[in-house]
C-alpha cells in the first residue's frame, strides 16, 4: 500500500476553478425539475405509444441518461481520463445493460400475454 500511495494518478488537467462544478449542478437541477414537472402534469400529447411504452417515459429515460452522463463525465471526472480507460469502463455497461433490459422486458411482456390467455 505504501508503495502505491507514493504514486498518485497522473494529474489530468481539468477546467480551472469551481465554475464548471456549479454549471453541472444547475444542469442536473434543471433536468430533475423538468422531470418532476412532466411527471406531475403528464401532458396528454406525450402519452402516445412508442417502443412499447409512452413517449413521456422515453423522455424520462433520455433525461435520466443525460443526467448520468454529466455525473460520470464531470463529477466522476471520467471524461478527463485517458481514452482507453474511458472505453474500458463504459463499453461493458453500454453493451450489457441494454441487452439485459431488452431480454427481460420482452420476456415480461410475453409472460403477461401467456398469463391472460
Amino acid at each position: 500500500m505504501a508503495e502505491n500511495n507514493a504514486y498518485p494518478s497522473e494529474h489530468h488537467e481539468g477546467p480551472e476553478g469551481t465554475k464548471w462544478i456549479w454549471k453541472v449542478f444547475w444542469i442536473l437541477l434543471i433536468v430533475t425539475t423538468v422531470e418532476v414537472a412532466l411527471g406531475i402534469i403528464k401532458p396528454d400529447f406525450l402519452m402516445g405509444k412508442l417502443l412499447g411504452t409512452s413517449l413521456l417515459n422515453i423522455i424520462f429515460i433520455v433525461l435520466t441518461i443525460a443526467k448520468a452522463y454529466y455525473i460520470v463525465s464531470e463529477f466522476m471526472h471520467l471524461g478527463h481520463e485517458r481514452k482507453n480507460f474511458i472505453w474500458t469502463i463504459t463499453l461493458p455497461i453500454v453493451i450489457l445493460i441494454p441487452y439485459l433490459t431488452f431480454i427481460l422486458l420482452t420476456e415480461g411482456g410475453y409472460m403477461n400475454v401467456l398469463m391472460n390467455q
Binding site: S9, R82, F85
Partner: peptide, 26 residues
Amino acid sequence: FGASYGKMMMWFFLLSDALTFSGFLT
C-alpha cells in the same frame, strides 16, 4: 491508463456494482 491502482480498482468495483443494480432494476 495513467490512473493509480486504488483509483482504477474503485472504477472496476463501481462497474460491477452498476451491473448488480441494473440486474435488480431490470
